[in-house]
Design a protein around this nucleic acid. Structure first.
Lengths: 186, 186, 186, 186
DNA sequence: AATGAATGAGCATTCATTCAT
DNA sequence: GATGAATGAATGCTCATTCAT
């Protein structure tokens, strides 16, 4: 309950390094990669990793939070930017293209049995995506009966698919085209 | 070579039990589940599992083969059955609905680095699906420019998505609706 | 105590095959080779091996017995043959040259903790070698103070050394020369 | 590379304990003894053994290095000491007497197929022994035509023999006498 | 706070041996 | 007697997590 004094400077630096290393390592090696590997890539000792993230789960969750924030930021930028019709499709495409980063982590957590709490971050993402969707529907670029949860499901699916199956860039573009066509008004 | 006389009755029974148990266990716990768990669920000793499948990989691969055969059989049944327009969409839906079974295993193998030989089984599946697609396009039920690889990609994606994200039955149905709409002629 | 009826013909044939296979396998792969390998090389099922030799130990012991008999036979032949001076040295050399066969088995048994009972066979070998030694000493070809147990020890040592260290044929010949020189009268 | 600061005190203590335990265990039980046994005899957990020696092979190799160093040290001491004639024979005897320690390990490694790199250690040993031999020959205590490799072979053989066959102290002394006689000038 | 050594449960795999067929 | 499937203890090794330094 005490506000717990602000982190020491080196501690904060280490936390960041660890997160960066973890992102790299898990993206490369899958979630089976060892925490030790993360530590050494971050240039810290294993104990330091566990001081910051008491559990491997916690580390994975933290990465996810990070990724989500990035995604949300991008959505906000697109919303602020302009043309609603383009924005929605651009964002959808962007999400699928970032899949590799996200996918591994999501998969890893799913595999462990306990999915991470959908928490605030995902709410924020959903909200941002919702805004883009509404705007696009308003502009008549997306069929009006498409609901937000369906659209979210669709991105997730396409992203996972692209990742797990290792589609070529070409195949990804074409498949994405089909998916997006399903969202356009007839 | 040696004609290798037909498996003894108890051996065949055990092999089947192990496969069934493995399917269950891996679907529930992910591919990280232990072989020991499979053995005990199958009611055999650990050595028996390894006698039938010398490697965990082999066990996983065997499950996959089994699943694929089921999928192909179903496709063949639908092809033989009649109405091409319905058949294609039914099969697509069926595949997504079986996703839980397939997904884990596929994912597990992909994660290990060495995917199982795409070999005959997947060729057979692609072929069967191709026949359904062609018939549906012929019947004017599917847009003529949709290519087989895109359609395969789409099923995979939807199936994985449904699996990993744990969609509700309702959400799955609605999302599937959107996907299939993208495949219909405009 | 009942004389236990004479072995069935096929049983005797199998016993022989197994022994032959075991000799091969253990010579090639060392004593760590699996009993299963022996069985398959002999063309019988694993159960058959264990029916004839209830324990891996027993199998190894049986091989040893076989080898010893061969060695004794050779000694007897040399004794009967003639020139005592040559005979002793020839036999010594012969033993070292057969080392590969013997060594593995002996080593294997030693490794297991319990050496095989020296039993009758080894007594027979010692006796045969003793005869050769005595004759050679009589003939003045070997120093009269060399005792039988020392000579036995010497062969064993040289044989093991040649085996374990993988001496070249040339090195073996030269080293053997030194050893034998130690046995000659000065 | 990295200067890699000097091992922590407890780590060094454990490393030493493990090596000592391993020497004991492998000498008693042969190389088939389990790593677990080594761990428990050393009073550490199994993980600690593997942290220090990532592979059983590595552990075996480390023991060998240790033994070799001891042998070389002894040789150096004898060289420095004085009387060349005695030194050579003393060292030969010493080597045979240490055989139990060495033999098991050497044998174990040989059996595994990959002998440890003959590398520096064995070169050092050969060299030290070579110096003793040369000095002894110079002093007229050893026949001048005896070559270093033959002499090495002879020690190896005698050591192995003494070890594997479990000679009594008396028999070892007498046999050694015969061997050494073969090396004296006539 | 950081370090990195120690822990020990867990895992895939092997193999001598037993026993139903 | 022969077969070969089943057993299960044992082994080498990994890795998340703890804790003394």
């Amino acid at each position: 309950m005490t506000p717990s004094r602000p982190m020491r400077a080196d501690a904060r630096r280490n936390r960041a390094r660890i997160l960066a290393a973890a992102e790299e390592v898990f993206a490369e090696r899958g979630a089976a990669a060892s925490t030790e590997e993360v530590a050494s890539r971050a240039g810290v000792a294993i104990g330091t990793v566990f001081r910051h993230f008491p559990t491997k789960r916690d580390l994975l969750a933290a990465i996810m939070k990070l990724l989500r924030r990035r995604l949300v930021d991008r959505a906000d930028a697109l919303i602020a930017d302009g043309d609603p019709a383009t924005a929605f499709f651009d964002y959808f495409t962007y999400l699928v293209e970032s899949s590799a980063e996200i996918g591994t982590v999501v998969g890893a957590l799913a595999e462990e049995g306990t999915a991470v709490e959908p928490g605030e971050q995902i709410k924020a993402l959903t909200q941002a995506f919702g805004a883009l969707l509404a705007a696009a529907q308003e502009a008549g670029a997306v069929r009006p009966d498409a609901r937000l949860d369906e659209v979210m499901a669709l991105v997730t699916a396409t992203a996972h698919g692209a990742l797990a199956a290792g589609w070529s860039a070409d195949l990804r573009r074409r498949t994405l085209g089909l998916v997006l066509d399903g969202l356009r008004p007839r």
